[in-house]
Amino acid sequence: MPGERGRRNTLERVLRIDQATYDALVEHAKREHPVEACGMVVGPIGSDQPVRHVEMVNAAGSPTFYEYDSSDLFQLYKEMDDRDEEPVVIYHSHTATEAYPSVTDINLASEPGAHYVLVSTREHGNNPGPVEFRSYRIIDGVVTEEEVTIVDTVTPAEESS
């Protein structure tokens, strides 16, 4: 939850994502390489829990650009609306550069509440091997990196003992 504005240099915000979803995003990025992969992990409004992975088609089909097809975009938002969901993670891959938002990414970021995840496949391409997986907030042109914590499951954990 957003607290007072911090002055520390450590990463104050955290993306909590479960292992299976993390693996699915990495697998998607590797499969599409050298084209950029894109998609979302959506969750209940206000929950900050990425629970439902939605792979999207990169309509640009490009190694340096991604864009959802406009009717796919409409369907996705309609579906989220019907299910009381919102974008929790908005991800895409960079296939030849680091997992850091480009100027284009920053200019086009339009979901201030979302975690923008970048996966870089530049090291191993379609092959097995580690990837860079980093998460950011992008608000009004300001990029803030956040910690990524991989958990078993993002949903329960709320029972008070």
């Binding site: 864009e67 959802y68 895409h92 938002p101 086009l108």
Partner: peptide
Amino acid sequence: VVILPAVAGGAA
């Protein structure tokens, strides 16, 4: 009428 910003970006 529905307005939606594109979801787009990329390394370029």
